[in-house]
């Protein structure tokens, strides 16, 4: 079994002195998809952001470590962290279009962040991006590259976001509620995309969602979070068929079933 690539060791994250997430531990291996499930406000987004060091000035991992290989992310200098973000660690936002600057084109921004990591020519960058766009089902990749974010639809935006995340060939792909802002049809498509990604590359994927259906469709393992604490952590099959906690049972029952590829 390969070594885990991302490990949370008794992590506590606080905002302004208040612990949002407490004593969370888990590990993800390459090629594995972990689903982190919880209600709104359970702290799941915070957990993901901590892995990218994106907690802002008010947030801090006040206890524990997040290991990426042998590096502890909270202890990294800003420069070291920046070198990892976008290449080794990548994040897909809930609203990918909002995560792009409104006043510059998609192509510009892709080239910009790729140049931050290594020397790459604009044409090479565009070409790589266009390939990814096609693989992810975006028609007319050249036009997408030349567009401003506000000109793209939600579904296109999520695909662009996933493509951007994949461009750096990450070892860890984190997705913060990637389907929550989409309509049901597009949701299904994006979910299929994620399983497609698993075939494409060997990254460890962590998907944060409030929707058990997404977990059932995609995740190998699932971690249930409630009010910042881990309630369940196990393989999807085990947790969903025999949930140990009443809370998990409630979550499962509350979710409408999605037609996922695993069904």
């Amino acid at each position: 079994m390969p070594q885990p690539v991302l490990t949370y060791d008794r992590v506590e994250v606080s905002y302004r002195g208040v612990a949002i997430v407490r004593d969370v531990s888990f590990a993800v291996r390459p090629g594995e998809i972990l689903g982190i499930v919880g209600e709104s406000g359970s702290g799941k987004s915070t957990l993901i952001k901590a892995a990218m060091g994106q907690l802002g000035t008010d947030g801090l991992v006040t206890q524990g470590d997040i290991w990426y290989g042998d590096k502890s992310i909270p202890n990294l200098s800003p420069q070291a962290l920046r070198a990892l973000c976008g290449t080794d660690l990548a994040l897909v936002f809930q609203d990918c279009l909002a995560a792009l600057t409104p006043i510059r084109t998609v192509g510009d921004q892709i080239h910009e962040f790729m140049s931050a990591h290594r020397r790459i020519s604009r044409s090479e960058c565009d070409q790589h991006a266009a390939e990814l766009f096609s693989q992810l089902g975006l028609e007319n990749p050249q036009q997408v590259l030349a567009s401003y974010p506000f000109e793209l639809s939600g579904g296109m935006g999520q695909r662009v976001g996933i493509a951007i995340a994949l461009m750096g060939e990450p070892h860890v792909l984190l997705a913060d509620e990637p389907t929550s802002a989409l309509d049901v049809i597009t949701q299904t498509q994006v979910i299929e995309l994620f399983s497609h990604i698993r075939d494409l590359c060997d990254a460890a994927i962590v998907i944060v969602t409030h929707n058990m259906g997404v977990v059932r469709a995609l995740a190998d393992n699932v971690l249930v979070l409630r009010d910042g604490m881990v309630v369940e952590y196990g393989s999807t099959h085990a947790v969903l068929t025999h949930p140990a906690q009443a809370y998990t049972r409630q979550l499962i029952e509350a979710t409408p079933r999605l037609w996922g590829p695993e069904e």
């Binding site: 407490r22 004593d23 531990s25 594995e32 393992n221 604490m229």
Partner: peptide, 20 residues
């Protein structure tokens, strides 16, 4: 110490296992 609803010790004690 934080405990889960039915009183079993939560995963707070640093005792946990990877699902696989």
């Amino acid at each position: 110490n934080p405990r889960s609803e039915d009183g079993t010790p939560s995963l707070a004690n640093g005792v946990w296992k990877h699902p696989n």
